Simulated scan of single mutants.
Amino acid sequence: MGDKQGTVLGTGTAMLTPSGYQVRPKVALSSCNRIVPPAAASIIGKCPYYYQPLHGEYLETVEKVSVSSAWETVKAFATSWDPWKDKEVARRLLRRREQLIAPESTDSDWSRHGNFMMRHVGCEHKPPSYYVSYGYYYCSTYGAKLYPKLSPEGQAWLQKARWHLQKNMEDGLNKNMMGDLIRMSSQKPGNGSFKMMVPQYELELDDDMFKAFAFRTHPLAYLDGGLADLPVSDLAKITAQPNIQEWGDARTWEQAVDSGKVVLPNMINRSDMDDPVGKALGRLLAK
């Protein structure tokens, strides 16, 4: 197989040495498998899909950040953090490497983050920071803080949107295994579509490109989950959830506008209030 599909972990050479020679030769172990295997259907829609909370350093940092709401700290940590420094966790994962890289693995320690680590051993590639920052952080935060506040309709939406977010990620990764074009459309007419060019096998290896791809899938997931049909009270709670620091990212505004193109007109149609400003904004976003 080519270097993009290598699955052998370890290389070495041998030479004749005197029988009394006691120093063992060092062998560099490495694997760089860019083929992304599909996730098991049973984990899609669950927060550990992105990351299994195994590393103490990550857990301690996120716990502190959650209290202070310092979203910038989460992002900075996710981009600088080296999960391989946690030797105990690394050994735990390596012992089950074959199970963790198998297609549709149901291993209890499987996650997209751990799967990437086990496919990129010793080749200096880092898992996309999205997995542990926006992915796991927001998935778990929404579940803990937002879910209890929503109406039954809002709670059902949250579960559906979470499933669509991860299913869209799976679809995008699979498309990148097939070629350079990622083209995705919503499951419901009128909820949008997008396409982007990403070199084959490279989506997970470019951190910024991966974030761009993931953010492009968000409006599709939110709307396919039924965001436009929720009561105003739920919409207010949902839009208030992202940390204020995150709104400095242009991609957040893009997904808000894309979702608003569908949500606002629906809100206006359902409202009995004569709100000329809201109606004008709805017409603008609908264009």
Rank of each mutant, 00 (worst) to 15 (best):
G6E: 11
V8P: 05
L9V: 00
G10N: 02
L16P: 12
P18V: 09
R24T: 15
V36F: 05
P38K: 10
P38I: 07
A40M: 01
G45R: 02
K46Q: 08
P48A: 02
Y49M: 00
L54K: 02
L59F: 01
E63I: 10
V67Q: 13
S69R: 15
A76T: 15
T79Y: 06
P83I: 11
W84C: 05
D86Y: 06
D86V: 12
K87I: 15
E88G: 07
L100N: 03
T106C: 03
T106I: 08
S111E: 07
R119Q: 12
S129I: 09
Y131I: 02
Y134P: 00
Y137P: 06
K149W: 06
S151M: 08
A156N: 09
A156H: 05
A156Y: 02
Q159Y: 02
R162P: 00
W163C: 00
K167M: 11
K167I: 02
N168E: 04
G172Q: 04
D180K: 04
S185N: 14
Q187E: 14
S193D: 13
M196Q: 10
V198D: 04
Q200K: 15
L203Q: 08
E204P: 07
L205V: 02
D206P: 05
M209Q: 14
M209P: 01
A212N: 10
A212G: 00
R216G: 01
H218Q: 04
A221S: 13
D224T: 10
G225M: 10
G225S: 07
G226H: 12
P231A: 12
A236G: 11
K237I: 12
Q245I: 07
A250I: 14
T252Q: 11
T252M: 14
W253L: 10
V257R: 15
D258T: 08
D258K: 14
P265W: 06
I268Y: 06
D272T: 15
D274F: 11
D274W: 12
R283W: 08
A286N: 14
K287Q: 13
